[in-house]
């Protein structure tokens, strides 16, 4: 690999860093954890850049790399039990009036979604990926993307509106 193509890769990757940060911030709920995640993902992407095919979608590839780093982090956090996966019910913020609180509520509610629903909801709703793109990034079938999206959106709605979290399977609309 020549120095020239490596520089090209960095330059092209550079333009997606703000988008990776936006997604990571919403995903982790914490500014410095988000930048850690982006930094780890970029380092990994640079090391593995030979695996990226020139001309293919670099944004999707970078998000895939970052997703894999994220999954590994969640897995090791779960293994060492340093991070509670389910926060207790008392942590649930009460719905409040006012924009500033709404943003904090949104952040808190997002963190209460299972990671698999949160990733789909953010890739589609925030990053505006197509379902096929999200499926490729997450390495799951398109049908799984749809069901996680549907469950994630409904759960987030209930959290934000202070409704009881329905654990019953989503009703099929006929």
């Amino acid at each position: 690999m020549t120095r020239g193509t490596s520089g090209d890769f960095s330059r092209q990757a550079m333009q997606y860093i703000p988008r990776l940060r936006r997604y990571a911030r919403a995903l982790t709920g914490d500014a410095s954890a988000a930048d850690d995640l982006v930094q780890d993902a970029l380092e990994r992407a640079l090391l593995k850049q030979d695996l990226w095919r020139e001309g293919s979608d670099l944004r999707a590839w970078l998000f895939t790399v970052m997703h894999n780093v994220f999954v590994n982090q969640v897995r090791s956090a779960a293994a060492s039990r340093t991070v509670p996966l389910e926060s207790s019910l008392e942590d649930l913020p009460q719905p409040q009036a006012g924009d500033r609180l709404e943003i904090r509520d949104l952040d808190a509610a997002l963190q209460r979604l299972p990671a698999e629903q949160r990733t789909v909801l953010l890739l589609v709703g925030l990053e505006q990926m197509t379902y096929e793109e999200a499926a490729r990034v997450l390495d799951v079938p398109a049908g799984t993307v749809m069901s996680r999206l549907s469950r994630g959106r409904e759960r987030l709605r209930r959290l934000l509106q202070g409704l009881p979290d329905s654990s019953a399977p989503l009703k099929v609309v006929k």
């Binding site: 911030r25 919403a26 709404e102 943003i103 949104l106 952040d107 953010l122 925030l126 709605r157």
Partner: peptide, 11 residues
Amino acid sequence: RQDAALRAAFD
């Protein structure tokens, strides 16, 4: 509204 709120919060 959720999607709009996400963009307003993180854009």
